[in-house]
Write a protein that binds this DNA or RNA. Structure first.
Lengths: 204, 204
DNA sequence: ACAAAAAGTCGACCGCGGTCGGCTTTTTTG
DNA sequence: CAAAAAAGCCGACCGCGGTCGACTTTTTGT
């Protein structure tokens, strides 16, 4: 009977991802080998590579799920009508808390997402797009409330905010910022700067 | 006679770095194996690891030199009295051109510098500091010329600009920006935003 | 001057991520 | 329903980055 094949594939894929959640979550990405993963998923090593091109691609797939959670958590903490900076802070700090809980993880995810290799570019873009969508929604709301200029490209605004988040996380990874509060403080300051502008007040 | 040892060490270290410049520059970082490097430097594999902790550390050492060149090139193109955005663009685009010429390279360098592992944090900080110094100098000048607010922490201003550069490079790696001109355009726009601010013009 | 100690060198070896050709299972064809 | 074709699965195998203990060279102590 036809269709058996497709069903099996779906199941196998799920088994691999399930094993990944288990093992990555348990002992970390770096300390989980593909062989272990294959064993745990009950398939051969080669099979894994017919579902995913690289180890990090498995990781990104795994992260898509995790990110959903973060989004949900953030949505819970602040509504769509809060002030823009408040929403941004909730969004970014929600992610940051995730990163702090999984430092190695987070580094890898960020590395792949921000400076992807050719092989993972597509997956990174997917993740990135869901990011941008989320931020765009926030910004549109803010524009309607008059908290944000309307004569700017939303993509660039989102990029701008995102950039500030990244540099802050980077500062944390480089040990320039130690505590969560340090990070929050720095990020808020940077966001403030971006809103107010850096020109002297008697401006052009 | 004493001192023979020290001299030899210095020479060996130089030989390794020299071989790295040669091979990394020639066939790229990823496609150069430690074994090759060892052969080319005329030492054993293990020896290399008594001079550097990881392959990427060799790379960072190598990059310190390269960066010097970029700085020099930039200094040549624009003086310290040019408008701030012009200086920033020259500085960042100088680096970007380097990155485009060595895509794999650049990715690795950025990954290590922005999201360093514990092992390379120190080296990354060194590189980063030289960055910040350079940017700080530009900003101080701009402040004196009245192109930049004085009531802001320079570190955060530099971080802000740097963040915008990074997100732009990231967009390039993700294939959202293709040509050098695209990148320059996007970066200039973002810098402009940061100077003018994102608040509506009837602002707080 | 020589032996003991310290420092430095080396390549066989390890487990890893990733590949590939042979094998099994499913689907298609007449 | 059998045989050919297509699709999927597997694990031995590859070169890699990195480790380690045996070995060599330099320094130190007497």
């Amino acid at each position: 009977m036809a269709g058996v094949r497709e069903e099996k594939k779906r199941r196998t894929r799920q088994a691999i991802l399930q094993a990944a959640v288990q093992l990555f979550g348990d002992k970390g990405y770096e300390r989980t080998s593909i062989n272990e993963l294959a064993k745990a998923a009950g398939v051969g090593k080669g099979t894994i590579y017919s579902y995913f091109q690289t180890k990090s691609e498995i990781f990104l797939a795994f992260c898509e799920d995790e990110l959903e959670q973060v989004y949900a958590e953030v949505a819970q903490k602040t509504g769509p009508d809060a002030r823009l900076t408040e929403q941004l802070m909730a969004f970014f700090m929600g992610q940051f808390r995730y990163v702090t809980r999984h430092k190695d993880f987070g580094r890898l995810l960020l590395r792949e997402m921000i400076f992807p290799k050719e092989l993972t570019v597509e997956r990174s873009k997917d993740l990135d797009n869901s990011y941008i969508d989320y931020l765009s929604a926030m910004c549109t709301g803010a524009q309607e409330r008059g908290e944000l200029r309307r004569d700017v490209d939303l993509l660039f605004v989102c990029g701008h905010f995102y950039a500030l988040y990244l540099i802050t996380v980077s500062a944390w990874y480089m040990d320039r910022l130690q505590t969560e509060d340090d990070v929050a403080g720095a990020l808020e300051l940077l966001l403030q700067q971006s809103l107010e502008g850096l020109l002297p007040t008697g401006r052009k």
